[in-house]
């Protein structure tokens, strides 16, 4: 464990909690892409099946349980409890265009052709593009609530910190996972446009609105 990975995990946890609280407190999921949240639930489910097969640490197990629990709670709030506030018209990204290619790639490019490893690889590839429906929705509505931008910032920052973690681990532990690194770079690059808008607008107190 190193400082980049710990702050990365905490940033990820913060994002998940911010979103859950935003929906719960405001009793609304306006501006939130339910499709992205479903993809994240799939990412955690396929990645953390090892909860059933191996124990690494209390921290590892508890974080995985929290991530999975919050992901499904968020999907439940969006599609069940507050479904009246779900903006399905703007959440129109065709996720099958993500899941199918990612599924195929996971079968072709992986470290080991075993069930758990292919699911892990699938979850890594899927996570790198899972935010696209959310970013697409913001581009369609042309704006995002400030709390949603904080959620996205923490979410984007987490994998950027993981990139620093992998540099650290390469240098000090000669640990290197090409699949996770490449997917992590893609994932972080997808946020660059948002990071620019967040830093130049939201941090200056303005509302995030895209040139429609």
């Amino acid at each position: 464990m190193n400082v980049f990975r710990l702050t990365g995990d905490l940033s990820h946890l913060a994002a998940i909690i911010i979103l859950l609280l935003k929906i719960w407190k405001s009793r609304s999921c306006a501006g939130i892409s339910g499709k992205s949240q479903i993809l994240f639930a799939i990412v955690f489910t396929t990645r953390y099946l090892d909860l059933l097969t191996s124990f690494i640490s209390i921290y590892n197990t508890s974080m995985k349980v929290i991530y999975i629990g919050c992901a499904y709670a968020t999907v439940y709030l969006i599609y069940m409890k507050f479904r009246a506030t779900y903006d399905g018209n703007h959440d129109s990204f065709r996720v099958e265009f993500l899941v199918v290619p990612v599924g195929g790639l996971a079968v072709l490019v992986n470290h080991d052709f075993s069930f758990l490893e292919i699911l892990w690889t699938f979850s890594i590839y899927l996570e790198s593009v899972a935010i696209l429906p959310q970013l697409f929705m913001i581009s369609k509505t042309g704006e995002a609530e400030t709390i949603t931008t904080h959620y996205l910032f923490c979410l984007g920052l987490y994998r950027a910190l993981y990139l620093l973690n992998w540099i650290w681990r390469f240098y000090f532990e000669s640990f290197f996972d090409m699949i996770a690194i490449v997917a992590g770079v893609v994932q972080t690059v997808l946020y660059c446009d948002f990071f620019y808008l967040y830093i130049t607008k939201v941090l200056k107190g303005k509302k995030l609105s895209l040139p429609a």
């Binding site: 990975r5 995990d9 990820h12 097969t53 191996s54 690494i56 640490s57 995985k64 991530y67 973690n165």
Partner: peptide, 10 residues
């Protein structure tokens, strides 16, 4: 392959 499970990251 090292014996301990190698996926210790979240």
């Amino acid at each position: 392959l090292d014996d301990d499970y190698d996926k210790d990251e979240l």
